[in-house]
């Protein structure tokens, strides 16, 4: 692998990194706190790639002379090491191409339906809800408060929850949202079951993003990690996919 190819791969990886972290695409894959690190890494890779390319161009025997043969010795500075680059570097084109050509979307219904654990047991005491009517809550927060604190902090409050539609085999649907610890490799789902859905809401296809307002109602039985708490729906709005698709 020549120095030129090495520099092109470095540039491509750097540009792909900058491309996803410049806008909001990176939020499909990692947490928001990674952004500065991704931007810095992208710049470093672009600088390294450009530097290597300039090295290789300087090392050309006659700069500017028309040179149609790609494999003529262009590694002048390090004679005989034209193929010193690691072959494995080609593999770095796979994520670059995946980002540019496929642009994998955020995890959604498929992952949520595979995740059977809904919330992790906790004996942490729950702080009262912040003010707001309705109060906007993370879906995971709602689930934890409902399942592990008996809904104590939710009583009498109107809440606003955002997630996507997860179709169930019986024709009903759950409101679900994925959460990341670190990146999409360790994502897990939070789910609530809406009841008394307004009949004019119509059929919502799986994956539709909605914001529900409503109140907590107790479900039967003791809370387990699989328990899916209920929410009594007062209002339902179909929304665009949020900028950050994860909780």
């Amino acid at each position: 692998m020549t120095r030129e190819i090495q520099s092109i791969i470095l540039l491509l990886v750097g540009i792909a990194t900058l491309r996803i972290s410049w806008g909001t695409t990176y939020l499909n894959y990692v947490k928001e706190s990674m952004r500065p690190w991704l931007l810095v890494s992208g710049v470093i890779l672009v600088v390294l790639g450009a530097w290597l390319l300039i090295d290789a161009m300087r090392a050309r025997p006659e700069a500017g002379a028309s040179d149609d043969e790609p494999e003529t010795p262009t590694e002048g500075a390090d004679d005989g090491h034209a193929h010193s680059g690691p072959r494995a570097a080609w593999l770095l084109l796979i994520p670059v191409l995946t980002i540019f050509l496929v642009a994998p979307p955020a995890l959604g219904a498929y992952s949520a339906s595979r995740d059977t654990t809904n919330s992790i047991a906790t004996d942490r005491s729950m702080a009262p809800l912040p003010p707001g009517d309705p109060v906007t809550l993370y879906l995971s927060d709602y689930v934890t408060r409902a399942v592990w604190d008996g809904g104590r902090t939710l009583i009498g409050r109107s809440v606003s929850l955002t997630g996507f539609v997860l179709a169930q085999p019986d024709g009903s649907w759950l409101l679900a949202r994925m959460q990341l610890n670190c990146c999409a490799a360790d994502a897990f789902a939070s789910k609530v079951r809406p009841v008394n859905i307004p009949s004019d809401a119509g059929l919502l296809p799986e994956g539709t993003w909605v914001t529900l307002t409503g109140t907590w109602i107790p479900s039967e039985g003791v809370g387990t990690e699989e328990t899916i708490p209920l929410v009594d729906v007062a209002g339902l709005v179909v929304i665009e996919k949020p900028t950050n698709p994860y909780d």
């Binding site: 499909n28 810095v40 994520p95 994998p104 999409a184």
Partner: peptide
């Protein structure tokens, strides 16, 4: 399934990249 695998793959690389740098 393929889409999820692609997302997980890209996210592992993106997450690891700054540390690798």
């Amino acid at each position: 399934a393929l889409q999820t695998a692609a997302t997980v793959f890209v996210s592992i690389i993106v997450q690891a990249l700054p540390f690798l740098v």
